[in-house]
Amino acid sequence: MSEKKPLWQTLPIAGILLEPKSSLKYKTGDWRGPFTPKINQEKCTKCLLCWIYCPDGAIERVGDGVRINLDYCKGCGICVSECPVKAITMERL
């Protein structure tokens, strides 16, 4: 936690973030506890409800299906509850 933060004189004004998509650098996947969502691609109907509901945008579209980007998944399990065909399960790794 000894990261050196910029002084007020050197920060861009107004809290503006000049670099687009800088949040991608902030990998929140390491907030995840011991449970990780896993998609059973055979059961998946590609309805995209998990993609819509994921609060972190950690579910990515691949072709016409989906994949979980574990760099950003915090393990909240919302995708598990929303999946209408129970294709996603939380698994202990």
């Binding site: 933060k5 910029p6 002084l7 007020w8 004189q9 920060l11 004004i13 107004a14 809290g15």
Partner: peptide, 9 residues
């Protein structure tokens, strides 16, 4: 960790 600096600015 950041807010205060913006107010001083």
């Amino acid at each position: 960790n950041y807010y205060f600096e913006f107010k001083v600015q």
